[in-house]
Write a protein that binds this DNA or RNA. Structure first.
Lengths: 254, 254
DNA sequence: TGGATTAGGTCCATTAGATGGACTTTGTTC
DNA sequence: GAACAAAGTCCATCTAATGGACCTAATCCA
């Protein structure tokens, strides 16, 4: 995909089978897998058998459908336990949630998507509800574009180019937007990915200044008046500053 | 391992690398992986590279150590979202937690271990604290033996035999214990795996009567007096009955 | 200082083992 | 009861996974 020297093909293929499963499509028949992975059926059958043997896939006895197995749940918990970023951010998120009464979320970049790794939902009746573990596009809305702005510009361009179809903006416009995000140090969007939803987002940095995640406040646009947005920006910059400092970042310069 | 027709060897090996990581050993150097998987270094390097490319492993830039990657976290969340058993059990567990003030836990069997898939910790100062996603032995304590009792006896025997070293009981003794668990329909243990900790455990069944999980109450032995244990048994049987019924089990017979 | 040790990594000839097209089985639809 | 579709097996072919030998960098220590 990206770098890949000479990875083991069958392993690469097996992992790509696992990645077919998502919140939107958590279980599939064999034929559906074949279709979405685009490999010969026999190959899929063998790989799926291996994944099944090791509990990375499981099969519903009744419907014959496959879904992700307990080994993934189990290893996922081990991975989760190691997310230092989450621990460090949690108290800050809680305070931010209290102060804003809106949904707070942390996103990171994973393989060209943004991935929500933690959230606190707002308690408003009309609220933005985030899903931990969900993969969403980087090229839309403040949470995505913020991450795009701070990543390697070359990779960012590739992602944008691959998705110009989905977008109602040109490359040049987006580029300008990304530059502005970096200049300001935060991003705001209204109704971009989700009609009626607004988002304010700012970067979290680790010791060496690298942006490792984005913190965001999201909610109904109707509540995101200019004054409140200004207030949210102040709050979120304070919050990301705190988190970054916990990660060893000394905000000396930029 | 178990059945396995002709699984894809490299995939099997790659997955076994992932399984080396645990709560107790969440990050490893390459050499440690080589040692624990017992394969030629070159092979490991290639497999690890594949896993790394696909975000199933990640590497700490400073220490060079590998740990489980974000793809596992992400897919783990998808797997988690599909755990019907958890949803169904949650309210029952909450009530049981309130009534007993002890730690409540659900365990399932995964590849010869017991795996905790959900828990509510007690709020006692001296409490049994469970960890979701942790793998523990089946051959020790009520939560384990209960599951052992209800699984295929042949598999159970193999597990016991492989671990007779760890045990201070003979095969015959354990067998008797398992039979008794089935006869009674629940299991109780005191200080078996953890000195000073006691556990009461009962089976959860799905529509066809298969035992799919065990529900357990655990806490300090000092609080598990005979009277309270009796009370706990009543409560847990009520709880597992409710959960099993939600899974479509009609308790007609056995 | 330089020689030993350890960990990470590359190279490449060999052949084991992954591959996928053709075929079989099972179940469902019209 | 013919047609279709999904799941699964078989096996000859040759790709691609393998692992021993070798390389490099860093660390230790005497």
């Amino acid at each position: 995909m990206k770098n890949s020297h000479n990875p083991v093909r069958s392993v690469e293929r097996a992992l790509s089978i696992l990645k077919c499963f998502s919140f939107d499509k958590p279980q599939m028949q064999l034929s559906e897998i074949v279709e979405s992975v685009k490999l010969p059926k026999t190959t899929i059958i063998r790989l799926v058998a291996s994944l099944h043997d090791q509990a990375f896939l499981q099969r519903d006895q009744a419907t014959q459908e496959y879904s992700l197995g307990m080994a993934l749940f189990q290893l996922g918990k081990v991975a989760e336990s190691k997310l230092r970023l989450r621990e460090v951010s949690r108290p800050v998120m809680e305070e931010l949630s209290m102060l804003t009464q809106e949904t707070i979320e942390i996103n990171i970049v994973m393989e060209g998507s943004r991935l929500c790794i933690d959230k606190i939902d707002s308690s408003h009746t009309l609220r933005y509800s985030a899903t931990i573990g969900k993969r969403l596009p980087l090229y839309s809305a403040a949470s995505g574009k913020l991450l795009l702005a701070y990543m390697n510009r070359e990779d960012a361009h590739k992602i944008i180019k691959d998705n110009l179809g989905e977008l109602d903006q040109t490359m040049i416009e987006i580029n300008k937007q990304l530059d502005e995000i970096i200049k300001k140090g935060f991003a705001v969007s209204h109704g971009e990915r989700i009609p009626g939803a607004s988002t304010v987002s700012a970067p979290i940095r680790r010791w060496d200044g690298t942006v490792v995640a984005g913190l965001t406040i999201s909610g109904a646009t109707i509540r995101f008046t200019p004054e409140r947005v200004n207030q949210f920006v102040d709050l979120i910059l304070k919050a990301t500053g705190d988190i970054s400092r916990s990660l060893g970042y000394k905000d000396g310069n930029k």
